[in-house]
Design a protein around this nucleic acid. Structure first.
Lengths: 326, 326
DNA sequence: TTGTAAGCGTTATCAA
DNA sequence: TTGATAACGCTTACAA
């Protein structure tokens, strides 16, 4: 079943395709009579312009690519929701790709988006594709980095300050529990995790605390890795009294781990970078670094829109400082 | 900065565009020498075929539209994750649109997807667009309904049985607490919510229980509405002992409501259609109808793929029966 | 105010 | 085994 084309409309309306186009795009002169008649026929035939053809001709797709590690992480979904709404208002649409923080999947995703001729890419990156990314920006497709910086690749960036709140968090834990604390880092190849980890180490160093090596774990930002870390940390006969977890999902996993081990959640105080939606419902000593996914989403959308309108704009960095909340 | 086209490649490789196309699509004869040389130039020039042009020429986009009410509901995200992976394996990609269960946003989303010339649409629908949907299927774009049926519109359907587990749930509550139970329904214009509500009423009728009118609420499947329902239900001086909640988010909201009111979560037994990821972590009497988002996702992907390969296939229904777990 | 026609980047038919 | 070229559906100079 063939789709209705602009030619069909032109034929039944008894005018040229140019006129149809002018009416629908509201550019160029066209008499009111003809306009009404065209609109009428368009409705009768249920004509929907072919966006593929339009994109080819105009050499613009109004598509923006979005690459994230994990679609089920509520943090990213909140980011995306506002992001998408903002872009939709300006008639842009999003194409999502998921990478599971895997560099080669990220490369595939990037190539796919380029072949789709998206006009910009918003990337919460796994890293490892610096060369490709440079080619992309050089060839004129703007990239906005979201949540994660990529060393060796300079681009617009929207992220959260990972130092300040982590230092505050660690200060708090050390002051309260001395050496009896543990740390669950994220995957250190990701900037966000690395920065948080550096802030952790800095604070430990300055405070002259001495933390057991086996109490400093490296997870991968996943729920499962937080759970394993918990098992490792709490295995000890006298376990730590406080723990810093570098993201929401690992914190979630840590609590699941406590449950596995039949340890009451409030036995250990947790400071988590990133909130858990259900934190009011659990009986736990939990302080969180409160992220602002909506702000991140909005800022990245704005930044992308600005960049699309002004290719030559200087590189922009938007850094949000999340607060530690008890 | 203009993109490299197939003409550029043809020119520098010293062959015709047809040959380039034949090499890249691996169809038609082409000598090994030429093949190697073309591949080489493609790599050197970093040529990426323009998917827009290809789609226009081939009259197929390999795009599948996906319409869901809420991107932040973990249930849908789990559905989508498997769905997307399955489709990606067959070289299809997904375009998401969010409707907030709003019919006119749904209509817009449908039109947008059609203008993008997606090859199929997977719809968790708000209803109210039957005529449009009929036009869509009649014109040859298959629609697979997901999670929610749409009365007056016949199409492939993947959903969960909403009667059996709800009857079981209500039976359980009534047997245990008699008339001292409350119900939080979803928005009754949505099939899923309506069916669950019908099953609730059926069971009440058969058991001759008498439930206070103000203890039967209608929410909108959102967290906030569950919270309000809680306030309404628990306002009473002697509140009910059990409650059935028609979806995960409202259950979440209900618990937040209890917290608002300073009522211990375990004071009231909840049976929820749809699990909460964090249910092991809270101190509550919670039984859940365990949905299988991954199965739903997989089944819809499979069904869509079958339909794309066999337009004339009979209408298919895939109904999963979720289990009540204590 | 309207129409004609070129061209966007591919693929596929046909001829060589 | 390869190349020339029409066509996909639209927009937009340019002409009328």
């Amino acid at each position: 079943v063939r789709n209705i084309t602009i030619k069909d409309v032109a034929k039944t309306a008894g005018v040229s395709t140019a006129t149809i186009s002018r009416v629908l795009n509201e550019n160029g002169y066209v008499s009111e009579d003809v306009r009404q008649h065209v609109l009428q026929t368009v409705k009768e035939l249920n004509y929907l312009p072919n966006a593929v053809a339009r994109s080819l001709k105009q050499e613009r797709t109004r598509g923006i690519g979005m690459i994230i590690p994990d679609m089920t992480n509520p943090y990213f979904m909140k980011v995306i929701r506002t992001l998408q709404r903002q872009l939709l208002e300006e008639k842009y649409h999003l194409l999502y790709m998921e990478t599971e923080s895997n560099s080669s999947k990220e490369a595939e995703a990037l190539q796919f988006l380029l072949s789709m001729r998206v006009e910009g890419i918003i990337l919460a990156g796994a890293g490892g594709n610096q060369d490709l990314l440079k080619r992309i920006t050089n060839s004129g497709t703007p990239v906005v980095l979201l949540d994660r910086n990529i060393p060796g690749f300079s681009a617009d960036l929207v992220m959260e300050d990972n130092h300040t709140p982590v230092q505050e968090a660690m200060d708090y834990l050390i002051r309260k529990y001395g050496n009896e604390i543990a740390v669950i880092n994220g995957p250190l190849n990701i900037s966000t995790a690395k920065e948080r980890s550096e802030a952790v180490l800095d604070t430990i160093k300055h405070s002259h605390a001495i933390i057991k090596e086996e109490w400093i774990c490296e997870g991968d930002f996943s729920r499962d890795s937080g759970r394993s870390a918990c098992h490792q940390i709490m295995a000890s006969s006298n376990p730590p009294l406080g723990v810093f977890s570098a993201n929401n999902e690992m914190t979630f996993g840590f609590y699941l781990g406590l449950k596995d081990l039949n340890i009451p959640l409030e036995n250990i105080e947790v400071v988590s970078f990133g909130d858990l939606d259900f934190s009011p419902l659990i009986q736990a000593k939990l302080a969180v670094v409160q992220q602002k996914p909506e702000s991140i989403g909005e800022a990245s959308a704005q930044l992308m829109l600005e960049r699309l309108n002004n290719v030559k704009m200087q590189v922009q960095k938007r850094i949000f400082i999340p607060e530690l909340v008890h």
